[in-house]
Design a protein around this nucleic acid. Structure first.
Lengths: 191, 191
DNA sequence: GAATCCGCTTGACAAAAGGCAAGAAAATGA
DNA sequence: TCATTTTCTTGCCTTTTGTCAAGCGGATTC
């Protein structure tokens, strides 16, 4: 079995496209591996990775005014991972992207992405669909954060991304949920 | 002065493009007016409006599990307004978009947008830039909501969209900030 | 002009979440 | 293995926010 099968299937899930085109797009990606705690992107770099995460768990985080790490989002397998602002606008990133566990996947650069956009019109639809998908996820998260208690937010996270519980330290989850370590620890107790 | 001057300038701000192209794109949009409280989109409709808001204030909202209106976002003048999910994925909208004040602007349909994407490659970049811009705004909002108190969130909203204070009833703002009317009323008092 | 409705404010109390510090448990490393 | 560091839990008390109910003033309506 072709090692890019997972990526090909992901593409076919996202846009209507011929399997041949999907395969050719997938073939343009190159394998990448990240060790636990390795960075895909560090702040002040210009991101040049558009990554399909085949296996593993990642997070994106930044530092707040007090210098504390704030986890902004978790990425689980079978998703596209990249820092939209830095990647598309070619500006220095304010955020970091880090592997929580060992990760494997396939990546292309900004230049390669644009070449693909040009050569494969269907890939443009893919790119747009990913943007729309991520945007919707962000909006849903907004909504979920505002109108729920910390306990409900925690339960919701466990429903949607149960992998996190196994592999992520409590403090990443706490800052993602916008509560202190203590509060999250107490929430866990009442389950 | 051409009545679409504002839209043309908006396009020129967003992407590098010739003024001639920007003008031709702007000319493809058609004027639209909305009275106070009129809806641009109601839930269960498939959105067909990609709107440049030239003047006025709008909001998008939905109903929570208790049937209460939750304001998801405010739109101020000189911005693109549309419901991404419904518009791009051609599915029924869960959200409503409503004019808070009288609004004027220019709109195109989904079909017209795709024709423009085809005829004017530079407009594709515009479309993508708008998506990226909105996505970033959504992420920023996420971040701002999580790690700030209600008071800080309120102050931040007033800094970024002061128009809202003048025209929006308190309850819209309260649900946007994720607090009760009472709490927002008390916050206001302490300023 | 009295009755009604709506938007907003306020008070009294309850619940949710945070701050801080101490300590237990787990991971790391020599 | 033992020592050290990091991660997580817990207790005590404070702050923030919510709930519920009452009240106020302006607009609308009959």
């Amino acid at each position: 079995m072709n090692s890019r099968e997972s990526l090909k299937n992901f593409i076919l899930k996202v846009v209507q496209i011929t399997p041949k085109d999907a395969q050719e797009i997938a073939d343009a990606f190159r394998p990448i591996e990240l060790e636990e705690k390795e960075f895909l992107l560090q702040e002040n770099q210009v991101s040049d990775d558009y990554l399909y995460l085949e296996n593993g768990l990642m997070r994106t985080f930044l530092y707040d005014l007090e210098g504390e790490e704030i986890t902004i989002d978790f990425f689980i397998e079978d998703n596209i991972v990249f820092e939209i602002t830095s990647f598309f606008n070619r500006v220095r990133s304010e955020a970091n992207i880090q592997a929580i566990t060992k990760c494997t996947g396939f990546r292309i650069s900004y230049e390669e992405l644009n070449t693909l956009f040009h050569d494969k019109p269907a890939f443009r639809d893919f790119g747009r669909a990913i943007l729309v998908k991520e945007f919707i996820a962000s909006q849903k998260r907004n909504y979920g954060m505002i109108n729920r208690t910390a306990k409900e937010r925690y339960q919701n996270l466990l429903m949607t991304k149960p992998q996190i519980l196994q592999h992520s330290p409590l403090k990443f989850i706490a800052s993602y949920l916008g509560v202190t370590d203590s509060t999250l620890s107490r929430l866990r107790k009442n389950l």
